[in-house]
Write a protein that binds this DNA or RNA. Structure first.
Lengths: 245, 245
DNA sequence: ACGGGATATTGATCTGCATCAATATTCACC
DNA sequence: GGTGAATATTGATGCAGATCAATATCCCGT
């Protein structure tokens, strides 16, 4: 039949335009393999070490992906945003390598590995889309490595703050901050005290304005210089500004 | 025609069995888009910030992927091994996000983004293969984040040493060590002095034996405990504070 | 509006690793 | 096999950020 009741499942895997060569029937067959799920903030989609049965296509909202050590130390690997595919690291693996926890209300489509594999085998357009998503995730992850491996605490925080700025939209507007100090610390490899101190310092210097649950970037240029990634022209005297003693 | 002279280009993208639905002619057409290249140790395939024209499929050898800050601080993002695809992060991007430098003799197949896109659009088997590779790279990168973000120097070095052990083969054998102390440090977010000290300490404790250009794992279990990933209650169980959220 | 737990700020001190420094070893090349 | 440059080891000292500690503030349910 030409219609089915699966529209509610709309996500990165089920937009009709991704299947140019397929009939509506076939598209519906694909869609029926997807299970739409809703999660509230703090809900866990899956835990590190669990058998990896499903993948998740994130339709809306944000997740944090964390890995922890037996003694309780925890690291945020990445913040997943709408459009990304979760758990693809287990494409050939057995267990989820991280815990996925909702930061906001989340809508996600769940699908089994085997089903995804079949869909990919039959639809190059979807496969391309997945490759693009994975590329983006890899890029995002590599950026975090840069931050963790060679930046000082203020540089890390600058980097983090800059990452909050949306590509489109007013950069001077209030930006929602969904992570606690502890979570920011867990992302940047710092302690919450250090994050708090650095952000207080930034606020004192009028680099940012901070309220509860949001921040406002007041001096983006300063952050971009402090975060260290930008222009290589002023490389020589750069290090002077880092600590004020 | 049924034969062409492109066999020399064999790599992850050009194994015939990956194109089950295609004729030999078509496979040869794909292969002709690939350019095989050879690199000696220390040769650079491309530099961070260069316009990203080509992707590289690594056929044999190892590469280090590095990113550096204007003041010279440098971070190894990942060691790429045979089978991986390089520069896919730029699938939609403009510039390489890292420098790729050969650690060993390297054979790689070079291909333009557009050509790869066409191949992927026409061959789901290849696309699946690329997805698997990307998954592996993402997993590898996430592991490094764990090391960088929440491990101490000895834990980092343990982690690194364990990563040298091949899946198959005698774990007690001499393992080739292609990275200098400085490079190990650049990978783990340490200094070369610290790496040297930790490794000297490990050698003193008979955890490893070290010679020129190789190391030998003498006490793998100890490393696995020290690296912290497995269950370890021996040293500090008092820190575990069951704080969920 | 109140009380109590979670989260954040701020201060004082400690420490793991960086930094600075001085050899020691290996390697490349003639 | 000797000479110098790159790499590695080892020691001494310093500091950024962790840790410990004491409020302060927010948040939510009743």
């Amino acid at each position: 039949m030409a219609t089915c009741s699966c529209e509610i499942n709309a996500c990165v895997l089920c937009e009709e335009r991704l299947y140019p060569g397929l009939t509506k029937e076939q598209v519906c067959q694909i869609r029926e393999r997807l299970i739409r799920e809703l999660y509230a903030p703090h809900e866990v989609l899956f835990r590190e070490g669990d058998p990896a049965v499903f993948l998740f296509a994130l339709r809306s909202g944000q997740l944090k992906l964390t890995s922890s050590m037996p003694d309780g130390r925890q690291q945020i690997l990445r913040i997943a945003v709408a459009g990304q595919l979760l758990g693809i690291e287990t494409f050939k693996g057995q267990r989820y390598p991280f815990t996925a926890e909702a930061l906001t209300d989340v809508v996600a489509c769940k699908i089994s590995h085997d089903d995804l594999r079949q869909i990919l085998a039959g639809s190059p357009a979807i496969a391309l889309r997945v490759i693009e998503t994975l590329s983006q995730e890899l890029d995002q992850t590599e950026s975090l490595i840069r931050d963790l491996g060679l930046k000082t605490a203020p540089e890390k925080v600058s980097s983090f703050l800059l990452s909050l700025i949306p590509q489109r939209g007013d950069p001077g507007a209030e930006l929602p901050l969904r992570l606690s100090r502890r979570e920011i610390a867990e992302m940047l490899g710092l302690t919450e005290e250090t994050v708090s101190r650095v952000m207080a310092d930034f606020a004192r210097k009028k680099i940012i304005g901070s309220g509860k649950g949001y921040i406002r970037i007041l001096d983006r240029k300063w952050l971009e210089e402090t975060n260290g990634v930008e222009n290589k022209a002023s490389s020589t005297e750069r290090r002077a500004q880092s600590g004020h003693s």
